[in-house]
Computed example of a mutant assay.
Amino acid sequence: MSEVSFPLAIPSADNHLMTLHQEGPLFILHLHHKDNRFTTEFCRGILYALQVVEDIFNDSEDPVDMALVTTGEGKIYSNGLDLMHAVSYIPFMETYLLMLRRLLTFCIPTVAALNGHAFAGGCLLALAHDYRVMRDDRGYMCMNEIDLPANLPPGMAGLLRYKMTPDTFRNCVLQGHRFPAKQALDEKLVDVICPGTEVLPKAKELALKWAPKAKSGIIYRQLKEEMYADVVRLLSIPYNRLAPKM
Protein backbone atom coordinates (compact mmCIF):
# COMPACT_ATOMS: atom_id res chain seq x y z
CA MET A 1 0.00 0.00 0.00
CA SER A 2 1.30 3.47 -0.86
CA GLU A 3 1.99 5.81 2.04
CA VAL A 4 -1.04 7.82 3.18
CA SER A 5 -0.79 11.13 5.03
CA PHE A 6 -3.50 12.24 7.44
CA PRO A 7 -5.72 14.19 7.42
CA LEU A 8 -6.62 12.85 3.97
CA ALA A 9 -8.81 14.99 1.71
CA ILE A 10 -11.17 12.81 -0.35
CA PRO A 11 -11.37 12.57 -3.28
CA SER A 12 -8.77 15.36 -3.55
CA ALA A 13 -7.72 18.68 -2.06
CA ASP A 14 -9.36 20.45 -5.00
CA ASN A 15 -12.62 18.53 -4.60
CA HIS A 16 -12.85 18.10 -0.85
CA LEU A 17 -16.06 16.19 -0.01
CA MET A 18 -14.86 14.43 3.14
CA THR A 19 -11.78 14.09 5.34
CA LEU A 20 -10.29 10.96 6.86
CA HIS A 21 -8.40 11.47 10.12
CA GLN A 22 -6.42 9.05 12.25
CA GLU A 23 -6.34 9.35 16.03
CA GLY A 24 -4.35 6.44 17.40
CA PRO A 25 -6.43 3.29 16.85
CA LEU A 26 -9.39 5.32 15.56
CA PHE A 27 -10.15 6.50 12.07
CA ILE A 28 -12.63 9.38 11.81
CA LEU A 29 -14.39 9.97 8.49
CA HIS A 30 -15.85 13.48 8.52
CA LEU A 31 -18.48 14.00 5.79
CA HIS A 32 -18.76 17.71 5.02
CA HIS A 33 -20.19 18.28 1.54
CA LYS A 34 -23.30 20.46 1.88
CA ASP A 35 -25.97 18.13 3.33
CA ASN A 36 -24.00 14.98 2.41
CA ARG A 37 -26.35 13.75 -0.29
CA PHE A 38 -25.16 10.65 -2.08
CA THR A 39 -23.92 10.86 -5.63
CA THR A 40 -21.70 8.34 -7.40
CA GLU A 41 -18.69 10.49 -6.56
CA PHE A 42 -19.65 10.79 -2.89
CA CYS A 43 -20.20 7.03 -2.54
CA ARG A 44 -16.88 6.33 -4.25
CA GLY A 45 -15.25 8.69 -1.76
CA ILE A 46 -16.59 6.66 1.16
CA LEU A 47 -15.53 3.43 -0.55
CA TYR A 48 -12.03 4.84 -1.01
CA ALA A 49 -11.85 5.82 2.67
CA LEU A 50 -12.92 2.30 3.66
CA GLN A 51 -10.22 0.83 1.41
CA VAL A 52 -7.53 3.05 2.94
CA VAL A 53 -8.51 1.93 6.45
CA GLU A 54 -8.78 -1.71 5.42
CA ASP A 55 -5.36 -1.62 3.77
CA ILE A 56 -3.80 -0.23 6.95
CA PHE A 57 -5.58 -2.92 8.97
CA ASN A 58 -4.38 -5.68 6.66
CA ASP A 59 -0.82 -4.35 6.58
CA SER A 60 -0.51 -4.56 10.36
CA GLU A 61 1.98 -7.29 11.28
CA ASP A 62 0.39 -7.96 14.67
CA PRO A 63 -3.27 -7.91 15.80
CA VAL A 64 -4.25 -4.32 16.52
CA ASP A 65 -7.04 -2.32 18.13
CA MET A 66 -8.87 -0.39 15.42
CA ALA A 67 -12.28 1.18 14.80
CA LEU A 68 -13.96 3.61 12.41
CA VAL A 69 -16.23 6.56 13.26
CA THR A 70 -18.22 8.54 10.70
CA THR A 71 -19.86 11.89 11.33
CA GLY A 72 -21.41 14.78 9.43
CA GLU A 73 -21.49 18.52 10.00
CA GLY A 74 -23.86 21.04 11.55
CA LYS A 75 -27.45 19.88 11.79
CA ILE A 76 -27.17 17.13 9.15
CA TYR A 77 -25.50 13.72 9.17
CA SER A 78 -26.82 12.91 5.70
CA ASN A 79 -30.02 13.87 3.88
CA GLY A 80 -29.87 10.79 1.66
CA LEU A 81 -29.67 10.33 -2.09
CA ASP A 82 -29.26 13.13 -4.58
CA LEU A 83 -32.50 12.19 -6.32
CA MET A 84 -31.77 13.99 -9.59
CA HIS A 85 -28.46 12.15 -9.87
CA ALA A 86 -30.00 8.82 -8.85
CA VAL A 87 -32.75 9.10 -11.47
CA SER A 88 -30.51 10.35 -14.28
CA TYR A 89 -27.63 7.92 -13.74
CA ILE A 90 -28.92 4.37 -13.17
CA PRO A 91 -25.45 2.88 -12.37
CA PHE A 92 -25.37 5.10 -9.28
CA MET A 93 -27.51 2.66 -7.33
CA GLU A 94 -24.99 -0.14 -7.83
CA THR A 95 -22.34 2.04 -6.19
CA TYR A 96 -24.62 3.09 -3.34
CA LEU A 97 -25.65 -0.49 -2.56
CA LEU A 98 -22.01 -1.60 -2.72
CA MET A 99 -21.11 1.11 -0.20
CA LEU A 100 -23.79 -0.12 2.21
CA ARG A 101 -22.62 -3.70 1.79
CA ARG A 102 -18.97 -2.83 2.39
CA LEU A 103 -19.77 -0.84 5.50
CA LEU A 104 -22.19 -3.42 6.88
CA THR A 105 -19.50 -6.12 6.75
CA PHE A 106 -16.47 -3.92 7.39
CA CYS A 107 -13.42 -5.56 8.92
CA ILE A 108 -13.32 -3.46 12.12
CA PRO A 109 -15.92 -2.01 14.52
CA THR A 110 -17.84 0.98 13.14
CA VAL A 111 -19.70 3.77 14.93
CA ALA A 112 -21.95 6.43 13.37
CA ALA A 113 -21.86 9.78 15.21
CA LEU A 114 -25.22 11.25 14.27
CA ASN A 115 -24.69 14.97 14.64
CA GLY A 116 -28.08 15.72 13.04
CA HIS A 117 -30.68 14.46 10.58
CA ALA A 118 -30.18 11.00 9.06
CA PHE A 119 -32.82 10.80 6.35
CA ALA A 120 -33.51 8.03 3.81
CA GLY A 121 -30.15 6.98 2.37
CA GLY A 122 -28.47 8.69 5.31
CA CYS A 123 -30.56 6.64 7.73
CA LEU A 124 -29.44 3.49 5.91
CA LEU A 125 -25.82 4.61 6.10
CA ALA A 126 -26.19 5.01 9.87
CA LEU A 127 -27.85 1.60 10.24
CA ALA A 128 -25.06 -0.07 8.28
CA HIS A 129 -22.69 0.74 11.19
CA ASP A 130 -22.25 -1.58 14.16
CA TYR A 131 -23.18 1.15 16.66
CA ARG A 132 -24.82 4.58 16.64
CA VAL A 133 -24.59 7.67 18.87
CA MET A 134 -27.26 10.36 18.33
CA ARG A 135 -27.63 13.91 19.57
CA ASP A 136 -30.64 14.37 21.84
CA ASP A 137 -31.53 17.98 21.14
CA ARG A 138 -32.26 17.96 17.41
CA GLY A 139 -32.33 15.68 14.39
CA TYR A 140 -34.34 12.67 13.27
CA MET A 141 -33.82 9.26 11.76
CA CYS A 142 -36.35 8.78 8.99
CA MET A 143 -37.16 6.86 5.80
CA ASN A 144 -39.42 9.18 3.80
CA GLU A 145 -39.94 7.08 0.64
CA ILE A 146 -43.69 6.92 1.28
CA ASP A 147 -43.88 10.70 0.95
CA LEU A 148 -41.73 11.08 -2.19
CA PRO A 149 -43.12 8.53 -3.27
CA ALA A 150 -40.42 5.97 -4.04
CA ASN A 151 -39.99 2.24 -3.68
CA LEU A 152 -37.33 0.50 -1.60
CA PRO A 153 -34.97 -1.91 -3.36
CA PRO A 154 -34.75 -5.31 -1.62
CA GLY A 155 -31.32 -4.60 -0.12
CA MET A 156 -32.44 -1.36 1.51
CA ALA A 157 -35.62 -2.96 2.86
CA GLY A 158 -33.61 -5.94 4.07
CA LEU A 159 -31.22 -3.73 6.01
CA LEU A 160 -34.11 -1.91 7.69
CA ARG A 161 -35.89 -5.17 8.45
CA TYR A 162 -32.83 -6.65 10.12
CA LYS A 163 -32.07 -3.59 12.23
CA MET A 164 -35.64 -2.90 13.40
CA THR A 165 -38.45 -4.64 15.23
CA PRO A 166 -41.52 -5.40 13.06
CA ASP A 167 -43.52 -2.50 14.53
CA THR A 168 -40.66 -0.04 14.10
CA PHE A 169 -40.12 -1.28 10.53
CA ARG A 170 -43.82 -0.77 9.72
CA ASN A 171 -43.90 2.74 11.16
CA CYS A 172 -40.64 3.66 9.47
CA VAL A 173 -41.62 2.46 5.99
CA LEU A 174 -45.38 2.94 5.79
CA GLN A 175 -45.67 6.11 7.86
CA GLY A 176 -42.37 7.80 7.11
CA HIS A 177 -42.14 8.25 10.88
CA ARG A 178 -39.45 10.62 12.14
CA PHE A 179 -37.64 9.11 15.11
CA PRO A 180 -36.23 11.69 17.56
CA ALA A 181 -33.31 10.62 19.73
CA LYS A 182 -35.24 9.36 22.77
CA GLN A 183 -37.56 7.23 20.66
CA ALA A 184 -34.65 6.01 18.51
CA LEU A 185 -32.96 4.86 21.73
CA ASP A 186 -36.12 3.23 23.08
CA GLU A 187 -36.62 1.36 19.81
CA LYS A 188 -32.93 0.34 19.72
CA LEU A 189 -32.09 2.22 16.54
CA VAL A 190 -29.22 3.88 18.40
CA ASP A 191 -27.05 2.86 21.34
CA VAL A 192 -26.33 6.21 23.02
CA ILE A 193 -27.97 9.65 23.01
CA CYS A 194 -26.30 12.81 24.31
CA PRO A 195 -26.07 16.58 23.75
CA GLY A 196 -24.83 17.64 20.33
CA THR A 197 -21.43 18.76 21.59
CA GLU A 198 -20.82 15.32 23.04
CA VAL A 199 -21.81 13.19 20.05
CA LEU A 200 -18.38 12.81 18.51
CA PRO A 201 -16.55 12.36 21.85
CA LYS A 202 -19.11 9.72 22.91
CA ALA A 203 -18.80 7.99 19.55
CA LYS A 204 -15.01 7.89 19.93
CA GLU A 205 -15.42 6.54 23.45
CA LEU A 206 -17.67 3.77 22.18
CA ALA A 207 -15.30 3.06 19.29
CA LEU A 208 -12.35 2.76 21.69
CA LYS A 209 -14.37 0.36 23.83
CA TRP A 210 -14.89 -2.03 20.92
CA ALA A 211 -11.67 -1.39 18.95
CA PRO A 212 -9.94 -4.37 20.63
CA LYS A 213 -12.38 -6.69 18.85
CA ALA A 214 -10.49 -5.92 15.64
CA LYS A 215 -7.69 -8.08 17.02
CA SER A 216 -9.71 -11.09 15.90
CA GLY A 217 -8.50 -10.28 12.40
CA ILE A 218 -10.57 -11.70 9.56
CA ILE A 219 -12.96 -13.27 12.06
CA TYR A 220 -14.67 -9.93 12.78
CA ARG A 221 -15.65 -9.57 9.14
CA GLN A 222 -16.60 -13.22 8.79
CA LEU A 223 -18.92 -13.00 11.78
CA LYS A 224 -20.67 -9.98 10.29
CA GLU A 225 -20.95 -11.66 6.89
CA GLU A 226 -22.70 -14.57 8.58
CA MET A 227 -24.89 -12.31 10.76
CA TYR A 228 -26.04 -10.29 7.76
CA ALA A 229 -25.98 -13.05 5.13
CA ASP A 230 -29.55 -12.38 3.94
CA VAL A 231 -29.03 -8.62 3.84
CA VAL A 232 -25.75 -8.99 1.93
CA ARG A 233 -27.49 -11.22 -0.61
CA LEU A 234 -30.25 -8.63 -1.13
CA LEU A 235 -27.77 -5.76 -1.37
CA SER A 236 -25.93 -7.75 -4.05
CA ILE A 237 -28.88 -7.98 -6.46
CA PRO A 238 -27.84 -6.04 -9.60
CA TYR A 239 -29.92 -2.88 -9.64
CA ASN A 240 -30.34 -3.00 -13.42
CA ARG A 241 -32.59 -6.04 -12.86
CA LEU A 242 -34.75 -4.01 -10.48
CA ALA A 243 -34.92 -0.63 -12.21
CA PRO A 244 -37.80 -1.49 -14.61
CA LYS A 245 -39.89 -2.58 -11.61
CA MET A 246 -39.16 0.40 -9.37
Score class of each variant (00 low, 15 high):
154 P>Y: 07
123 C>G: 03
116 G>N: 03
222 Q>I: 07
236 S>D: 14
215 K>Q: 14
227 M>D: 12
132 R>W: 06
149 P>I: 00
206 L>W: 03
233 R>G: 08
174 L>V: 05
135 R>G: 11
198 E>S: 12
122 G>H: 05
159 L>A: 06
103 L>M: 08
185 L>M: 09
102 R>L: 00
127 L>G: 05
181 A>T: 07
185 L>S: 04
178 R>V: 00
173 V>A: 14
150 A>P: 01
104 L>I: 10
223 L>G: 09
220 Y>Q: 03
111 V>K: 04
141 M>A: 04
240 N>W: 06
235 L>Y: 10
151 N>W: 11
120 A>I: 00
240 N>S: 10
107 C>M: 08
189 L>T: 04
105 T>E: 01
212 P>C: 04
95 T>Q: 01
128 A>F: 06
186 D>Y: 11
231 V>P: 05
155 G>H: 00
182 K>L: 11
124 L>E: 06
99 M>N: 01
153 P>T: 05
173 V>D: 09
187 E>P: 03
212 P>E: 12
169 F>Q: 07
174 L>N: 12
128 A>P: 13
206 L>V: 14
208 L>W: 09
213 K>C: 02
176 G>I: 06
226 E>V: 10
209 K>Q: 10
195 P>K: 12
222 Q>C: 10
149 P>C: 14
231 V>S: 01
202 K>P: 03
227 M>T: 15
197 T>F: 06
125 L>V: 03
224 K>S: 10
185 L>Q: 09
109 P>H: 10
162 Y>G: 00
122 G>W: 00
228 Y>C: 03
158 G>V: 03
227 M>I: 13
167 D>C: 04
158 G>F: 09
122 G>Y: 05
171 N>M: 09
213 K>I: 03
125 L>Y: 05
106 F>K: 09
218 I>W: 13
163 K>A: 02
175 Q>S: 15
234 L>Q: 13
109 P>K: 11
109 P>D: 08
166 P>C: 15
239 Y>W: 15
96 Y>F: 13
120 A>C: 14
162 Y>K: 10
216 S>R: 14
165 T>A: 14
134 M>F: 15
143 M>Y: 06
213 K>G: 00
133 V>P: 01
218 I>R: 11
174 L>W: 07
125 L>P: 02
104 L>D: 01
151 N>K: 13
225 E>R: 14
147 D>S: 13
154 P>K: 12
185 L>H: 13
138 R>G: 10
127 L>F: 15
169 F>M: 15
157 A>D: 10
161 R>K: 15
208 L>D: 08
164 M>P: 02
221 R>P: 00
145 E>G: 01
125 L>C: 05
135 R>Y: 01
228 Y>R: 04
96 Y>Q: 07
209 K>A: 08
143 M>Q: 08
199 V>N: 02
115 N>K: 09
143 M>N: 15
195 P>Y: 13
198 E>V: 01
